[in-house]
Amino acid sequence: MSTISPDTLKSAGPFLVYIYYLAFPNDRTAVKAIVYGLYLVETVQLGMITYDAFQTFVIGFGRLDALNEVNMLWFDCCVIDGAVASVVQTFFAYRIFLLSKSKLLTSVIVLISLMQLGGAITAAVKDETVSVFSEVRGNFIAVSLSLGGSAACDVMIAISMTYVLSRYDTSFRDTRDFLRRIIRLTMETGSLTAYGT
């Protein structure tokens, strides 16, 4: 079985949202709002990053100091990435709570998710205040909290989902095979999201 790269998933965004719309018409309104809202935020982020790239490589063509300008990268790469990751991780924590009824496990996942969001916001504030890359100092801890916390949270979600689903034992062969496929998919996508951070 081949693995899907995170870049492939991002480029397939509109198609995946359309598949979600067709496959899950009866989902709760809150879940639909999360899916469509995240798609909208990611689309806005794409526009912001494109604008930043245009400012740096087209408007600033031939100026070396243009490569040093932060522009809006502090917001579209730090704040939006941290917020999107936090929403998705909290949603998975909620799903884990529904399956396991473990308040402790859910709380740990949510706390790690909030920690990575705090690291992302801290990194964004430091980047925005200096406005040039060459002046960014002492951002290592904030960036480590953001990226490391996000990866740790994704791995914890994958392991927790695998453990919780593996505890469901059934005597029906079809159900057992279905659970095995879900566990395999959980491990693959959890590893994929941890790899993508």
Rank of each mutant, 00 (worst) to 15 (best):
18 Y>A: 10
20 Y>Q: 01
22 L>Y: 03
24 F>L: 13
26 N>R: 15
29 T>S: 15
30 A>G: 07
32 K>L: 10
33 A>E: 07
35 V>M: 05
36 Y>T: 03
36 Y>S: 05
39 Y>L: 03
39 Y>S: 08
43 T>Y: 00
48 M>E: 01
49 I>E: 10
51 Y>R: 15
51 Y>Q: 09
58 V>Q: 11
59 I>W: 07
61 F>A: 14
62 G>R: 07
63 R>P: 01
63 R>W: 06
63 R>L: 14
63 R>T: 05
66 A>C: 08
67 L>Q: 11
68 N>S: 07
69 E>R: 14
69 E>S: 08
73 L>I: 07
73 L>F: 11
75 F>H: 06
77 C>Q: 14
78 C>W: 03
79 V>P: 02
81 D>S: 13
91 F>R: 10
92 F>C: 14
95 R>H: 09
103 K>W: 10
103 K>F: 11
103 K>Q: 08
104 L>F: 08
105 L>I: 12
108 V>E: 12
109 I>R: 08
111 L>Q: 11
112 I>T: 11
113 S>H: 00
115 M>S: 08
117 L>G: 04
119 G>N: 07
120 A>Y: 00
122 T>V: 01
124 A>T: 05
125 V>K: 12
130 V>R: 12
131 S>Q: 13
133 F>W: 14
135 E>D: 15
135 E>P: 01
137 R>C: 02
